[in-house]
Design a protein around this nucleic acid. Structure first.
Lengths: 346, 346
DNA sequence: CTGAAAGCGCTAACAT
DNA sequence: ATGTTAGCGCTTTCAG
């Protein structure tokens, strides 16, 4: 492929192509955008010139001039790109967008509302066509004004308080209910719940599902068996240790998040009761199957959530103006042993 | 904060601010860019108008006009955003850039040279200031021409064949050497190596380190003990099974990648020899400490690699024109039991 | 069907 | 110290 020299090492522009093809630069623009009908002869000549120069349209200039300001770019703002759940989610979003030639700008909010807002504004400044957001737990009604209202936003993992938008979440409540029912079915009546801060949507939904299962089986709610507000594996390990060494310990534990599950595993093994006290975790963990016993989990599908979010956003970009919808992605129980330990005879 | 109406719901521009402050729009531009000296009075008036309108500069227009074409944006093209190593790396890059107000555009190459090239060109079109690339194993000399040569590129995880650029890699060879020496120190003389395709830089470096350690201890290289070209945990499990059930099985295994380590763990447990055959893996795995025995690994630091890459790229953007450099990020042995199993008496 | 002119929001280069 | 004019590369609008 020859690359005939431009005046300098400049990137070729529409005008360079036009000069070479001996047409007006508007004709080149028409060919590039597949606009209206350009005569076959000119089209061929223009195509050849484009090829010869290695011309590529400049999206920056195009975005600036365009009436609709489209940039073929969307933003993804997730809580923590380093955590496996967000990583898988992000990968699925990027993959879904790529298939349509849409690039993805990324940022981490670190669950800080100020970071989140700043990232959001920076992306709007850059004229992204849409946004996938894992919203912090704070009020988002400000998004209604402030020029974000007219861009398309899809919430993932949880809804944004105070702002109605398309939302894709896992079936947190249903999954948690099934997880606890699984334990009940194995004879457990004292089932502890270790979970995150109830202000967090996912944490409170999972707690609600757990309680529903208990209620449905006619079991009383015992506040002593709920350890809430836990943030990491360390805190979870301590909480589970305390529960197990208390006056009337549970025979089973439901851990409401992957890090908390890891903490529970550590506590159980430290006390040497990993084959006596049952455990089910929400969200899958790598190597869970290699432990002894294997860890039974209610798995979410971050890939499915990301895929769905990308699809929903693309549909909006294509002009879908129907009312905001919420998609609930199912969870699935993966039995590996820890959740099938039977309750002791009484 | 009041938001006095513009003619329509338009985003305010420099001119809107200028009109309100009763100055020329160039003066506003000067204030915004902190350019030259504008009299304190005007500065105050302009600042007030900016505040009142909620004006934010338009980076798209600014990038288009700017002589240097700076966009305050960089690209990250990694192999697989869903894998934990890439995820952590990506998170660290985004975090490092964010601190300087630089946004990160992301793409996955899926180790496909065409995808990689396409992503690269798309980002160049968007005028990114720099690129962090995890290059595929193919020849990259084409990058020298084709308008990529003048953007700053930092390679991560491995160098790009045929293209000299700043590079940040883990100490693959040294780490592997130490891992195998660790096994030798525990009395092992027949140490198997399971690794990826030798065309891959990391795989071949780790193999080289392993061999160096054997050579340094006066042990012969036995091709029967090297299983190369493995791509996932499944293939690794099979390879390790075969090794252990062969004529003269190894007493220890060094697995050259995290997925391969997981496969090795499965094979060892299936055969019930996890307490007899030693294992060290390259790259850490979650829950490795909860297994019995815990899995000893030579850990890399994706976060450190990402942080370093971001730093290097920012320095280039700041005008550093020194020769391309390679930074080697150290690895660290994490002993957990599997690597400390002693060789059987002979 | 094709082209010429205007202008997106901003910075560069030159006045004043 | 401030303002004026031109123009980045493209799409829009309007003429032929």
């Amino acid at each position: 492929v020859s690359k005939p020299s431009l005046p300098s090492g400049r990137r070729p522009t529409l005008r360079d192509v036009a000069r070479l093809a001996d047409v007006s630069f508007k004709t080149v623009s028409r060919v590039v955008n597949g606009e209206a009908a350009v005569s076959p002869q000119l089209t061929t000549r223009v195509r050849a010139a484009i090829e010869q120069l290695g011309y590529r349209p400049d999206p920056t200039a195009s975005t600036l001039r365009r009436a609709d300001g489209r940039s073929q770019t969307v933003a993804a703002i997730l809580e923590d790109l380093a955590n496996p759940f967000s990583g898988a989610l992000h990968g699925a979003i990027v993959a879904g967008m790529r298939r349509r030639g849409v690039l993805v700008l990324s940022a981490s909010s670190e669950e800080d509302p100020d970071d989140e807002r700043e990232a959001l504004l920076a992306f709007i400044d850059r004229r992204v066509d849409g946004i996938v957001l894992m919203p912090t737990s704070t009020d988002h009604s400000w998004m209604g004004s402030d020029r974000i209202g007219d861009r398309h936003v899809v919430m993932v993992d949880r809804p944004a308080p105070g702002f109605a938008a398309d939302t894709v979440v896992a079936d947190n409540r249903g999954g948690a209910r099934e997880a606890t029912r699984h334990l009940i079915r194995h004879g457990h009546r004292r089932i502890a719940f270790v979970g995150g801060p109830p202000e967090m949507y996912t944490a409170s939904e999972r707690l609600a599902g757990h309680r529903e299962a208990l209620g449905g089986a006619g079991l009383a709610l015992d506040p002593e068996l709920e350890a809430l507000g836990l943030l990491d594996s360390q805190q979870s390990r301590q909480a589970v240790s305390r529960l197990l060494t208390g006056a009337s310990p549970p025979s089973a534990i439901f851990a409401g998040q992957n890090l908390l599950t890891i903490g529970a595993v550590r506590a159980l093994r430290q006390l040497g009761v990993q084959r006596e006290v049952a455990l089910v975790g929400f969200d899958d963990i790598e190597l869970a199957g290699e432990l002894d016993p294997g860890i039974t989990v209610m798995a979410q599908s971050p890939v499915e959530i990301g895929r769905t979010a990308a699809e929903l956003l693309l549909r909006r970009l294509d002009g879908d103006t129907s009312a905001p919808q919420t998609q609930i992605v199912p969870t699935g129980l993966v039995t590996r042993g820890s959740g099938e330990l039977l309750a002791p005879e009484r």
